[in-house]
Every structure is written in structure tokens, then in C-alpha cells.
Nucleic acid binder design. Structure first.
Lengths: 157, 157
DNA sequence: CTAGTAGCTCCAGTAACTGGAGGTTCAAGA
DNA sequence: TCTTGAACCTCCAGTTACTGGAGCTACTAG
């Protein structure tokens, strides 16, 4: 008989756009189940692993934390349960995204203003430095420190 | 004679809104100079330290990395040098902020669309889960992974 | 003198990976 | 069958920008 399709980790990596180390990391923290191994101890994945990893990656791209994803995955294990909680998690995520956009926009405004004032002289006269040194009772930015996470990992080479 | 004003670390912390540990951390990584010490080995800061720390904090709030701040601080040490580089650093920062806003906006769009499709049934029918599981050739989000840093530290308390 | 707060150093932990060392396995070609 | 080289393995350390705790010492008010 033909065996079902199994993938070595590199192939799974290619198909999902997720680095090999990251896949192993997800396994380590229990987000991905342990796959079958060859007699030589190499991992072999099946399509279900690929689906799960795709789910994780897409969720990460949408900015969900690994903890949120863990919860979402837990919920999907019980298909009869109400999807209220899923909705909650996504809604919370949306809220955070909105907050971050708001903060970044304020930040942009200040950066733009700062740059506009620079006339390109000596550092001693530099408005950018001046603005940065200025610590007036904190502009719009100082309050509400929230989630620092963003979609995607660090730059990959 | 009256001594010049010196602050213990807790007072500096209060005045700048920067945690005690964070101040010590900045010293450890060479961003803040080593302050004077009492005979009992406690740190005592002067107004110049406060200015420098304020500069660092404000820059952090604007999303500059510690490395960028280190560079900016280095540049301010030479007041006769052209402020072109300062401008460059700020401009790079602005660029990154713009990119992050763009990405977050795309993200928001997708989250909103996802949530709108949820009619609140069972998880088996949940559109949110479906969308997350879907790994079409990657929407607008998969490209351009950049700086993960955001204004402010993690939530404090 | 004592109590309590604030300070000290050192170490470990956070999120979400990434990279490398040093060794093994697999698959294809000779 | 042997060899070669890519891909795999585990384990560990590093990244960013802090944060928290243990266990100890200094300072200051009463």
C-alpha cells in the first residue's frame, strides 16, 4: 500500500513558511503535538500537523499571542462548544490592535513635527535632540502601556 | 556651603517615571553613566543624570531602540557635528512607525472582517476559526517583518 | 537603639523566537 | 557498497528591554 504523505521538518517548514527551529520550539512548548519519528529519530509530519501549524502561523500574523492561540486551539478541540469565547479572544485582539494604532499614530505625529523643525544645522542647534530632551509633563504618549507584540517574528536575514 | 542637589535612585525614579531597576539596568548597559556613591555605596544622582534619563525615556516613548538612543546620545556629545545623522535616525524611526501602522491597519481590517462573519453558533461552524485555519497564499500580512518594539515597556502592575 | 524603608548585588525570568556547536541520518550518485 | 553532502538531531546561549525576587546592608526618624 502507499503510505500516507509524511513530511520531514524542512519540507513542513517550506510549506508553511515557518522556520525549522520555530516548529521545534512550538513542539517544545506544547503548541504542536509530537510527531512520529523515523527509526533514525527524525520527525515526520502528516497533513494534520500542517493544518495546525498553518493555523498557528496565521494567528501569529494577526498578532495573537501564543497563549491566545493555545486557547483557540483548545477551543477547537470541542466543536460543540459555543464560539462565544473565540469571538471574545478575537475581539480583545482587535481592541489591542486599535490601541496600538492609536498610539503609533500619536507617535508619528510627534516624529513628523520633530523632523519638520530640523533645519539641518549643528547638533548644538538641533531641534530633534531638543525635543527628545524635553520632558514636559509627558505628551499623549506616556499613558497606557500595553501589549508590545506585533505580527511576525524578527527579521530573518 | 549648600551642596548641589543630589538624588537617591528612588527619587530619580519618581521624578522621571522610570523604575529603579530600569535605571540600574541602563547603567549596566552603559546608557547611563555611573553616578557618585555615598560611603555606604548608594547611588546619588545630579540634575545632569536626570536630564539624560529624561532624554532616554522620551526617546523610548517615541519608539527608538536603546541602540538608536545610544547613537543619539553619542552624537549629542559632539555639538559641532552636523545634525544630519540625528535626522537620519529619526527619519528611519518614522519610516518604521509608518510601516507598523500600515501593517496593523491591514491586520485590523482582517480582524474586523473575521468578526463580522461570526454568527455565534457552535465552534464547528465558527468563521473565526475557519479564517484562522485558512492559509491561502498569505494575505497582505506575511511580507515585511520589521521592528517589534513599541512605545513603553510592559504593563507595570 | 530600633524599626522600617530604601538601597545594594546577583540571578532568573518574560515573549517569541533565532543561531550555533557538535554530532547523526538520509538519499542520491559512483 | 561506499561516499558525499544536505538535512536532521539535541542542547544551549543569545536577542530586546526590561521586571521581579532573594538575601543582605544603609539610611533616617523617633
Amino acid at each position: 500500500m502507499t503510505q500516507i504523505e509524511t513530511l520531514p521538518i524542512g519540507e513542513l517548514s517550506r510549506q508553511t513558511g515557518c522556520k525549522v527551529q520555530t516548529i521545534r520550539y512550538y513542539e517544545q512548548i506544547g503548541l504542536m503535538p509530537e510527531p512520529a519519528r523515523t527509526t533514525g529519530n527524525q520527525r515526520r509530519y502528516d497533513p494534520r500537523h500542517r493544518e495546525r501549524l498553518a493555523f498557528i502561523r496565521h494567528s501569529r500574523e494577526l498578532g495573537f499571542t501564543l497563549e491566545a492561540i493555545r486557547e483557540l486551539l483548545g477551543l477547537t478541540d470541542d466543536p460543540d462548544c459555543s464560539c462565544e469565547m473565540v469571538d471574545d479572544i478575537a475581539r480583545t485582539q482587535l481592541l489591542q490592535v486599535n490601541q496600538r494604532i492609536a498610539r503609533l499614530s500619536a507617535l508619528r505625529t510627534e516624529l513628523v513635527r520633530m523632523l519638520e523643525q530640523c533645519r539641518g544645522g549643528r547638533i548644538a542647534d538641533c531641534r530633534v535632540i531638543e525635543v527628545l530632551a524635553d520632558h514636559t509633563p509627558a505628551s499623549c504618549l506616556s499613558q497606557d502601556h500595553e501589549a508590545p507584540i506585533e505580527a511576525g517574528g524578527r527579521h530573518a536575514g
